[in-house]
Design a protein around this nucleic acid. Sequence first.
RNA 1: UGUCCCGUGGUGUAAUUGGCAACACGUCUGAUUCUGGAUCAGAAGAGUUCAGGUUCGAGACCUGACGGGACAACCA
Length: 567
Amino acid sequence: MSEDNINNKEESKPSISFIEQFVAEDLEGGKNSGNVITRFPPEPNGYLHIGHAKAICLDFGLAKKYNGKCNLRFDDTNPVKEDVEYVDSIKEDIHWLGFDWEEREFYASDYFGKLYDFAAELIKRGLAYVDDQPAELISSQKGTPTQPGTESPFRNRQADENLDLFRRMNKGEFDEGSRVLRARVDMTSPNMHLRDPIIYRIIKSPHHRTGSSWKVYPMYDFAHGQSDYFEGITHSLCTLEFEVHRPLYDWFIDQLKTDDYRPRQIEFNRLNLTYTMMSKRKLLELVQEGIVKGWDDPRMPTLCGLRRRGYTPESIKKFIDLIGYTKVEAINDVSLLEHAIREDLNIKAPRVFGVLNPLKVIISNYPEGKEEDVELINNPEDETMGKRLVPFSRVVYIEQDDFMEIPPNKFFRLAPGMEVRLKGAYIIKCEGFKKDEATGVIEEVYCTYDKETRSGGSGSERKVKGTLHWVSAKHSVDAEVRLYDRLFNHEDPSGQKEDDYRKFLNPESLKVLTGCKLEPSLKSAGKLEKFQFQRLGYFCVDTDSTDRKLVFNRTVQLKDTWAKVNK
RNA sequence: UGUCCCGUGGUGUAAUUGGCAACACGUCUGAUUCUGGAUCAGAAGAGUUCAGGUUCGAGACCUGACGGGACAACCA
């Protein structure tokens, strides 16, 4: 192999997605004067979820990489479903992810005037007509994917009359549903979207931005492509289901454009995650039916839910980077998302002691009333995070799981006669325990400690098989800890034809633990602050937490090879 | 009985545009560890849905099957 080849291998760039390849080609071809302008176009009718994050990362990320701009545009063409509540949450979530649209905050409703004029122009050119038929009739005349449609009796209405009716529709002279404006394309097209699509309908509810100045509203298909055109979008990135809409968008732009410029639409696969679902409608049902506690319930795949769960924007972006953009409809394993958050928090989260299911351990030869501070490293992955002092005393709590009366093989924890290290403190030996014979519950464990084995001390070299986390009973703070598991116990809960997704709800998706014992330093933790509870997982302070009642959420468990062995 | 899109280890993606399939997650070993975490070393696992064709050479190109998906809201 020549030296050149070796160098090439070492320098080989990470591959870019097919979308980015198209963009790069356009740039090389001198299209759009070398500009890249994208847009993220949410409808303000729900909260953003991780699937939207995939689009956001693409739209904003690509623009940034190619020195372009990305607009935020709310597709607010349906006043009956949309609300400012959603506008605000969407903006917050995009910022949280770390993207910014500067002053370019647009609304499809900004273009209602232009869109109306364009529709009027289409009428004048004989390319649009007012249809007086009811919805069911129009629908039945559309035909089916395998059968051509039939033409409306109003299809050949004269332009003057169409124009007059369209104006009067907008003045509120007609009832909702009584008339629509349709584009005059081709009722026999194999593409259903081209069969004289409805482009305007009468809606009399007020709009969150334009109030009641309009009585007629453009359909999404009539607003979206043209909005891109008005904004000078060069690359219009969207999900696969809009592929069949593209010919329609092109048809509109053909009527509208005055030069060579036109936005290039590129479709990619939407994000699917195992054991959850992304349908906004179904997520709304979970909220409305009280199955979850709100849009920001930590079990939700919404960005606010993930944020409250303890996910970082970096971990979400890393995950999205890992899964890539293709045209294959894929379902991604949540374990990859979990890997991303573990990897991020491993570096960032300070380690602390928290005992979820406390078991009292009495160290009988440790002087009563004595207490001492032991020093612990905050994060072995990052020395700059320093050390802290944790109080130790005669009575400590350990995890119930860390003691067994009759241990199986390879149980490196506490059991009668066995020794174990209390991390950062001493080696202790189990001398006995107290058990409620009726229930079989272990109530207390009695140990002795080896004074010489204090961590960092002269006798600390001695090895024992297990190391446990612990909390001094006297100094511990109580907390509620919420353990989350997947919301559904089916990989694809909403993809089952026969069964409603509700059938697959995991009854154990939330377990609330009270009386958990935490080390005292946690008392002052701020909301959403993240920690690794050593040997257990990553946790963050819930937004419900107060000074009087600490509440933590478990973001994700640590990998647990013992649990696997134990199976 | 249509039109459009897609088929690469268990999962998600690569393959310098035609030169004998790479990475990540997961899985399994082992080392190490005062977290059964992290880290380190290693392993197993696909011959690219199938059948033809073009070519010296195909995961890439062509044809045809097969399989999956999208499209029939006055939703977006």
